[in-house]
């Protein structure tokens, strides 16, 4: 490389770097795509839409939701991984495509720990084990007894292979020593429809979609996966209370961008989410959905992703969650 080339190269690098800063300064100068990994109406999608609305209100640019449901969010994750890291494509989703899929899905087209930039966790919630009106069990104990009496016959639906519903059910099976058939759905709404129709008898999923139907006594809440009961369903016991001591599983929902997203934009989105989730309106909305707002830093979110993956690996190794 001669001197002239060196100068040209240096100049180009400077221009590129300044373009990166300019990009972050003017962001968002056009509509931002927010990928939602599940079909409309599920908890994950509702959160994505709430955050998109909040960001639209703050920046005056449209944050447009795009649903890419299927393969427990892996379709959406793949789409995000292929997007340009210019801050105009982000994803808001439950933890499966951001963490669990890495170990649960053999054919995952991306590595969430390499191909994504963590932005922030948005909310947490326990999972809910619910049963159809005609289900052969009315409690976790009866469910386990049914599985023992009918080996290989217990079906539990989840909103996608590798979702927290799937993992949480697998851990019940592991702790109770029974076999469970996991039936993956394309998100919560179709699972709920089949549960209401009695086509599947048990579902393990985020609670918000199920609450109104439990109040109408169309389906039954069997247990929550948190350490404590939840205020929306005070009469529903925890899994631990029903004999599986120490059982606790939490769902989380978070925002991520593609690999190499400018730090300035990450921090802009993170700050906006934090400001919004502190407002009384957001707090009220979260409570009505059975969610707890949790906003952590991008660095902390990377830790959450790492812990989630580590906690699932032993299940996969033990053959309780089969990689698909």
């Amino acid at each position: 490389m001669n001197r002239r080339e060196f100068i040209v190269l240096g100049g180009t690098a400077a221009v590129l770097a300044s373009r990166g800063i300019a990009l972050a300064d003017s962001w968002p100068s056009k509509p931002v795509v927010v990928i939602s990994a599940y079909p409309p109406g599920g908890t994950s999608d509702i959160i994505a839409r709430l955050v998109a609305d909040a960001l639209t209100a703050k920046y005056g640019q449209q944050f447009v939701i795009e649903n890419h449901a299927g393969a427990a969010g892996a379709l959406a994750g793949g789409r995000l991984a292929r997007a340009a890291p210019d801050g105009y494509t982000i994803m808001i989703s439950g933890s499966a495509p951001i963490a669990a899929n890495k170990v649960v899905q053999k054919n995952l087209a991306y590595d969430p720990q390499v191909d994504f930039t963590p932005i922030s966790i948005v909310a947490e919630s326990p999972a809910l084990l619910s049963a159809s009106a005609s289900a052969p069990a009315k409690s976790v104990q009866e469910l386990i007894a049914y599985a023992r009496a009918n080996p290989g016959k217990l079906n539990i639906g989840n909103p996608g292979a590798g979702t927290k519903g799937h993992i949480a059910a697998a851990i019940i099976g592991q702790m109770a020593g029974v076999q469970i058939n996991h039936i993956p759905y394309k998100g919560s709404p179709p699972l709920l429809a089949d549960l209401l129709g009695g086509h599947i008898h048990f579902a393990l999923d985020a609670p918000s979609n199920y609450l109104p139907h439990i109040r109408d006594a169309k389906i039954r809440g069997l247990a929550v996966t948190s350490a404590k009961r939840i205020p929306e369903l005070p009469e529903v016991q925890t899994v631990a209370e029903q004999g599986l001591n120490g059982y606790e599983q939490t769902l989380w929902f978070g925002a991520v961008g593609p690999k190499g997203m400018p730090k300035e934009i990450v921090s802009k989105i993170h700050t906006a989410i934090k400001e919004w989730s502190d407002t009384p309106a957001a707090q009220k909305k979260f409570a009505s959905l059975g969610l707890t707002p949790v906003v952590n830093t991008p660095g902390e979110m990377a830790g959450s992703i790492e812990r989630e993956i580590r906690s699932i690996e032993p299940l996969v190794k033990a053959g309780l969650v089969e990689p698909t």
Binding site: G70, A74, L75, Q105, N107, A161, T324
Partner: peptide, 15 residues
Amino acid sequence: TDINTGAARYTFGSP
């Protein structure tokens, strides 16, 4: 991408 397993089908290697 297959809806249940995430396997790529008939994509001829094209993203």
